[in-house]
Amino acid sequence: MSKKKNSLLQGTVDLLILSTLRAEDRHGWGIQQRIEQIGSEALSLKQGSLYPALIRLGNAGLIESEWRTTENGRRAKYYSLTAAGRKRLEIEVGQWREFSTSLNLLIESA
C-alpha cells in the first residue's frame, strides 16, 4: 500500500470515527456498528483496522478511553471525544462540506 493512499484512507477513517462519537460515547464494536448503519458498502473496511486508528486518535489527544460496563453487564472500553477532538471534528466536517460543495458544483456545471 502506498503511503499517500494510506494517509487518505486514514484521514477518512479518522473522520468517520470522530463523527460516530459526536452524540455519545461508544465502544469499538459500537463505533463499527454505527459506521455500518450510516455508511454504504463503499465505506466498509476491515473491522480490525479500527483499533490502530483508535490508538492513533488517542495519541493525538482527540479521544480518550475508559473501561465501563455495557447495558448487558460486559466490560468494554468506551471512547469519548475530548475537547480537542470535538474542535477537530468541527473543522474537518466544515472542510469536508466545503470540499464536497465545490465538487458538486463542479460536477453539475460541467
Binding site: 476491515k46 473491522q47 480490525g48 483496522s49 483499533y51 490502530p52 490508538i55 488517542g58 495519541n59
Partner: peptide, 23 residues
C-alpha cells in the same frame, strides 16, 4: 472475515502505541 487479520490489526495497534510512548 469481517474483522480481517487479528494479528495484523494487533501489530498495527502496537506500532501506533509504541509511537505514543516515544512522543
Amino acid at each position: 472475515k469481517e474483522f480481517g487479520g487479528i494479528d495484523q490489526a494487533k501489530e498495527e495497534s502496537r506500532d501506533a502505541w509504541g509511537v505514543r510512548l516515544i512522543t
